[in-house]
């Protein structure tokens, strides 16, 4: 074949249709914004009874519950196929990434399937989030000692 891999990479990028970024971003904006709007509604509701910190936690739990329900009914996946980052980035996307493997891998058993795979997608988020926050905590502590 009269071609080398470098030339082929150019050919492939010319032939591959780009993602429709404007449409994707509009979907992401309205769906992602909409989820945050629902979150804000929940937060204002919880603020009647609780302090800001607990209201924030309850807001997260409420959205996670909604996401779990949508995921179980098969709606979250359908929405995400259009909304992209709009459903990925909010905490509902995190919940979907925990709930969907739990449902999917039931066939492989409650411990070896559901239990083992439940953090298959969300695990890295928790691992690196915890590591980054601990590193920041260490710096903050050192800063306190020095300052």
């Amino acid at each position: 074949m009269k071609l080398n891999p470098k030339e082929y990479a150019h050919m492939v990028s010319r032939a591959s249709p780009p993602s429709p970024a404007v449409r994707d971003c509009l979907w992401a904006f309205f769906v992602g914004g909409g989820i945050c709007l629902v979150g804000e509604g929940l937060r204002q509701f919880f603020l009647y009874w609780y302090d800001a910190s607990l209201a924030g936690t309850l807001t997260s739990i409420g959205l996670i519950l909604l996401s779990a329900i949508f995921t179980t009914l098969g709606w979250y996946q359908k929405l995400a196929a259009k909304a992209g980052a709009g459903t990925l980035v909010p905490i509902t996307g995190f919940a979907n990434s925990v709930v969907s493997p739990a449902i999917e891998f039931k066939a492989e058993g409650w411990v070896t399937g559901v239990g083992a795979k439940i953090f298959g997608i969300a695990g890295p988020v928790i691992a690196y989030g915890t590591a980054a926050s601990a590193l920041w905590g260490l710096l903050y502590w050192l800063q306190g000692k020095v300052g």
């Binding site: 971003c25 992401a28 992602g32 909409g34 980035v89």
Partner: peptide, 12 residues
């Protein structure tokens, strides 16, 4: 919230 998601979409 919408704009934070748009940034994610641009990354994708």
């Amino acid at each position: 919230g919408g704009l934070i998601c748009v940034v994610g979409q641009l990354l994708i």
